[in-house]
Simulated scan of single mutants.
Amino acid sequence: MKFLHTADWHLGQTFHGQERHAEHRLFLDWLLETLVEREADALLVAGDVFDVVNPSLQAQALLYDFIVSAHERLPMLDIVLIAGNHDSGNRIELPAPLMRRLRTHALGRVRWLDDGTLDAERLLVPLTDASGETCAWCLALPFLRPPR
């Protein structure tokens, strides 16, 4: 299996008041071409997808356009996104049911079972090769926030 691991995209970040959407678009275009060239089986994104917990619509569109394009170009690519300390875990997970149809697993929060134990099974994501066979598992553990 071929994995590509990234983190800290910080989509929606501004630099001295200047939007960086064009730079982020170029990065995502490069990333997609790299995934295709290397025939990757999985893309792992280890947090800080967005720069702030309430990203702009344009920043969110960058992410979702990338996921759709990746699925169109590499239909068997598994994508795993976890929330980092800059992300809202709820925002990362909100479109999860739709993203699963694009082989994208978005995990933003840990959950606890009724008996008080961690729902670790929910955090285990199967990763498949080009034939669809599960060849690896990813423990998609998002940033752990202190309890309030």
Rank of each mutant, 00 (worst) to 15 (best):
G108I: 08
F143A: 11
C138V: 09
R145T: 10
A140H: 07
L98K: 09
L118T: 05
C138G: 02
C135W: 06
A130W: 10
P146M: 08
P142N: 09
A106L: 09
C135H: 08
L102H: 09
A106H: 01
T134S: 05
A106P: 01
L113S: 10
C138N: 07
G116V: 07
L113T: 06
R145F: 03
R101Y: 10
P97M: 08
R103C: 01
L144D: 05
A106G: 03
P126E: 11
P126Y: 02
G132A: 10
P97Q: 14
C135V: 14
P97A: 08
T117M: 11
H105L: 01
H105N: 04
M99S: 08
W137C: 00
T117G: 08
L102D: 05
L123P: 04
V110S: 12
D119T: 05
R109K: 15
A136K: 12
L127H: 10
D115V: 01
E121K: 11
W137L: 03
P146C: 05
L123Q: 13
R103G: 00
G108A: 08
E121Q: 13
L139A: 15
T128H: 10
L102E: 04
V110D: 06
L139Y: 15
R101G: 07
L102W: 03
L124P: 00
V110M: 10
S131H: 12
P146L: 10
R145K: 14
L141T: 05
P146A: 14
L127Q: 11
L118E: 09
V110C: 12
A136I: 06
L123H: 14
G108R: 14
C138Q: 09
S131A: 12
V110Q: 12
L124M: 10
D114N: 14
V110H: 10
L141E: 00
C135I: 13
P142A: 08
E133I: 04
G116A: 13
L144F: 02
D129M: 00
A120W: 11
T128W: 00
C138K: 04
S131E: 13
T134A: 06
D115Y: 06
R122K: 13
L98V: 02
E121C: 01
R122N: 05
